[in-house]
Design a protein around this nucleic acid. Sequence first.
DNA 1: ACTTTTAATGAACACATGTTCAATAAGTTT
DNA 2: AAACTTATTGAACATGTGTTCATTAAAAGT
Lengths: 195, 195
Amino acid sequence: MKKDLRIIKTQESLRHALLSLLKTKSIETITIAELCRLAQINRGTFYLHYKDVHEVFKEYLDVIVEDLRKSYEEPYYKTNYKIKDITADMIKIFHHVKKYQDFYQIIFDERIPMMYYYLLFDTVRTFMRDSIEEGLLTSQPDLQVDYLISYQTNAILGILIEWHRQEYKTSIKELNMQLITIVSLHNPIRMHGND
Amino acid sequence: MKKDLRIIKTQESLRHALLSLLKTKSIETITIAELCRLAQINRGTFYLHYKDVHEVFKEYLDVIVEDLRKSYEEPYYKTNYKIKDITADMIKIFHHVKKYQDFYQIIFDERIPMMYYYLLFDTVRTFMRDSIEEGLLTSQPDLQVDYLISYQTNAILGILIEWHRQEYKTSIKELNMQLITIVSLHNPIRMHGND
DNA sequence: ACTTTTAATGAACACATGTTCAATAAGTTT
DNA sequence: AAACTTATTGAACATGTGTTCATTAAAAGT
């Protein structure tokens, strides 16, 4: 059940044209008509595959997020809920964002729809869910774990927002240090024996 | 230096028309032409005041966020960086979001630009900045406080995102309890003597 | 009340959007 | 290779976008 070659060709042309246009102008100023002219695709054909320019961009983002997911699956030594473990995971995210900085500058732009943010949120959220220790749930029976996970996930994204606002000038090493300091503040009892 | 009455009338007409349209359709489907027809405003006049439909909506949001800011300025007993203080502040935000639920359902919608999220972020962020104890900065000289504040601010917004996704079904009382539990998890040493 | 200032209007323009439909061309099956 | 299936095309249409400009009308200043 392979996909029709014509579809692949059309979508590739559009993606390629979008990347080309993004080099000189912001995604918000790129029109469907303009994109189709450059890709040499009939405008009606565009609507057979996408609703707007953002949906073409989202296909790139899916690939990028998949890369993040893969980097996360790399095995490493896991112990229970410790600062070192959490930060080790989060550092991967920092590296990832830096690697695809050009894209994340778009994702965090104020004119862009929330959907991209949520895509990142949901991805990081699955990582967070996996890092919850089992003992926590039994020791805190009243805790609705979804709230905890969203809290922790968005806290990390808060770091990324701040990094974005400071135009990615902070080095990953420095960012890493800041995160460890912040998490340590919230976990003063666990300061000893780590790092 | 008062504003021209005609401007006020035009803007009020447009705001009123937008509210009316929002009762039956989503903001993303409302066109400038449609808005102007209902408001009985020439479309060219619209462009003298706004760039797009979102800018009209944003005027409402400015009022709403101002309401949040005011509620926050209510004096209450402040001690140093304790769970009770933080949660007391955050509960105000929960009440505020519930009060304007219809608006926040729009703000957290995935099709909506990030600008609204950032407006809320920046507002809550100023509250967070004010609640940082002075001793912290001297005891942690290497900490870039902007990262800490953005981390904490976005963590709270993470709770709101989760609330939104659960269609605001969680009661404020329950949400409050969840927050206290979560913050307590991160501050195990301070569990005693609070609440 | 009269004058000055400026906001709102309507018409026009080029271009974008979103959709339909018959004709064509390209890919897939046999 | 022929028959099929279906993606793409171009044309057309109504509507929306963003801008310009002379004209009108309403508010502000005197």
